[in-house]
Simulated assay, not measured.
Amino acid sequence: SDAHMEMVQIGISGIKAILMNADRAFFTRRMCHEGALSRLAACISWISRKGAEEEYQSIRFEAAEVIQIFAKRPDPLVKKYLSDEKVLEALVETLDALKIPDLEPSLELFLSAILDLARDPLSHVPLQNANVIPRLVGILDTYHDSYANHTCSALVPKMMTEVISTLSLICRVSSKRQELACVAGGISPLQGVFKKFGLLKEGGL
């Protein structure tokens, strides 16, 4: 309902305002302890079911901004809460709903957050269990032709770099995850992008 949407907007905006203007180290930890990430994940799942309706775009973008703030924290405790099964499932599942031009700003923020999380090796198994690998390969499949031909939007090169970097981090030392990427069809788009832009040494596949 409109009332429900307004309450969600106020809540997410409030969290963002606190994190932007207060002691970020203290409040990210406190919010994790209070269950803010699990509630935010539930909101993201709810918003993702609304599709590309314009009225939900600002809420979606702010939710992505808040997730990115948490993901950029170097705090192991925050990373642990972000790696929670329900939180990761919500983040990963929403990626499919964002692969349209109007929602690319939100998609880029979520991809950036997942990349920041993937820099922590302890997140790799939870990310794998949340099926992030086939979702990321799906993004490569969606964008790699327009990316390679320079016909994409300005955000796509950044997103492709984030996807490739995340896959490299997650798959580099795990033959099982490399196999998952292959099964998902990731080799062809990865090789195409790497060859086009001279990045063959960057990937772990």
Score class of each variant (00 low, 15 high):
residue 135 R to I: 03
residue 181 A to F: 07
residue 13 S to Y: 12
residue 62 E to M: 10
residue 119 R to S: 10
residue 38 S to W: 01
residue 33 H to L: 13
residue 87 V to M: 07
residue 6 E to P: 00
residue 40 L to I: 13
residue 89 E to R: 14
residue 126 P to K: 03
residue 21 N to E: 10
residue 138 G to S: 01
residue 162 E to A: 07
residue 160 M to S: 07
residue 177 R to M: 11
residue 146 S to T: 14
residue 81 Y to I: 00
residue 65 E to R: 12
residue 35 G to H: 09
residue 108 E to S: 04
residue 67 I to V: 15
residue 104 E to N: 05
residue 202 E to W: 12
residue 44 I to Q: 04
residue 110 F to H: 06
residue 11 G to P: 03
residue 132 V to N: 01
residue 45 S to R: 04
residue 72 K to H: 10
residue 165 S to D: 12
residue 34 E to C: 14
residue 181 A to C: 15
residue 9 Q to T: 14
residue 115 L to A: 13
residue 201 K to S: 15
residue 174 S to V: 13
residue 88 L to N: 03
residue 19 L to D: 00
residue 21 N to A: 05
residue 150 H to S: 13
residue 159 M to Y: 02
residue 59 I to T: 14
residue 154 A to P: 00
residue 6 E to M: 06
residue 22 A to L: 07
residue 174 S to N: 10
residue 38 S to R: 15
residue 168 S to E: 06
residue 32 C to L: 10
residue 16 K to T: 07
residue 155 L to V: 14
residue 23 D to E: 11
residue 67 I to L: 15
residue 122 L to Y: 06
residue 34 E to N: 14
residue 108 E to H: 11
residue 159 M to H: 07
residue 32 C to G: 09
residue 127 L to V: 13
residue 105 P to Y: 12
residue 187 I to W: 08
residue 98 L to M: 11
residue 73 R to K: 03
residue 135 R to H: 09
residue 115 L to G: 05
residue 57 Q to A: 08
residue 189 P to R: 04
residue 155 L to Q: 07
residue 128 Q to S: 13
residue 102 D to C: 05
residue 18 I to N: 00
residue 71 A to D: 01
residue 121 P to M: 07
residue 150 H to G: 00
residue 76 P to R: 04
residue 75 D to P: 07
residue 59 I to N: 10
residue 124 H to G: 09
residue 171 C to P: 03
residue 135 R to D: 02
residue 197 F to Y: 13
residue 119 R to L: 08
residue 53 E to T: 09
residue 87 V to R: 00
residue 120 D to M: 11
residue 194 F to Q: 06
residue 107 L to M: 13
residue 93 E to W: 11
residue 198 G to V: 09
residue 64 A to I: 12
residue 28 T to E: 08
residue 39 R to T: 08
residue 126 P to S: 00
residue 193 V to C: 08
residue 76 P to I: 03
residue 28 T to V: 11
residue 170 I to P: 01
residue 172 R to A: 13
residue 123 S to W: 03
residue 154 A to G: 04
residue 155 L to K: 00
residue 3 A to W: 04
residue 203 G to D: 14
residue 75 D to M: 08
residue 103 L to P: 02
residue 77 L to H: 12
residue 33 H to M: 15
residue 175 S to N: 11
residue 182 C to M: 15
residue 157 P to A: 04
